[in-house]
Design a protein around this nucleic acid. Sequence first.
DNA 1: AAGTTCGGCAACCGCCTTGGT
DNA 2: CACCAAGGCGGTTGCCGAACT
Length: 252
Amino acid sequence: MMKAPCFNKNGVKKGAWSEDEDNKLRSYIERYGHWNWRLLPKFAGLYRSGKSCRLRWVNYLRPDIKRGNFTKEEEDLIIELHKKLGNKWSVMAAYLPGRSDNEIKNRWHTHLKKRAKKDQDMLEYEHVRTVQPDQVSTKEKIVQNSDLEFLQDIETLLAESPLSSSSSANLSSSSWFDGFDSTCSGDDIPQPANYKHAEKLWTDAFLPSNDNLFSPTNLDYPVSFHDIIMLDEFLCSPTNSSIDYNDQFGNW
DNA sequence: AAGTTCGGCAACCGCCTTGGT
DNA sequence: CACCAAGGCGGTTGCCGAACT
């Protein structure tokens, strides 16, 4: 299932993570946060690269990660998003709370690609069977326009959201979640506009001098931004392009 | 029962972007 | 502006268990 552990010439361990390594990484991040991925393994007592640690955390150890089978709804959403976005796995992950980009990517390649292809073939077959060449226009144009508007909605939303590359971080669900979920509880929920500081909040909250230790059990998750955008209403209403981010999320 | 093939998925790799100096 | 370091992303690899012969 996974790569066998081994060491490269620099003494960096590669391959499958042991339970002990997981525990070390988890407890270190829970206590101090991931203030610097490159240095983190050294401080955490791990013989891993920073990248490897980051990946392990983002894809496996994050407290909000959801493991197990994808639901039908999640799969449908991935297919829909893939139609609109292509291979933007990290953006898709933002629409699927608790799922990592890697997980979504794997799911796509192993299951959904085939399913989407089948669906597409069926659709084309139906189209050819039912529509005369001179009738193509209206219905098809509506669908194409809807797609375009949907795409514009997403682009608008992303441009305004903390996921935007114009804000502090890349379009990375991981950086967004890491800072967000782990630092916010109760009244201390940052406004989306302040999200650029979330990474700092996260770090500050777990500096060694801070007694406010984080543990997954005392997290008080806010209603996720993604839960809201996942609403069918949003996804299925291409005309709803004027979603006001601040209106919706300003009350956090 | 043994050998082979296939599917799933964790992890790695290389490139790109961003932010700091 | 150029350079560098760090983080992040998407493509790919490789291992292992399941299914098949």
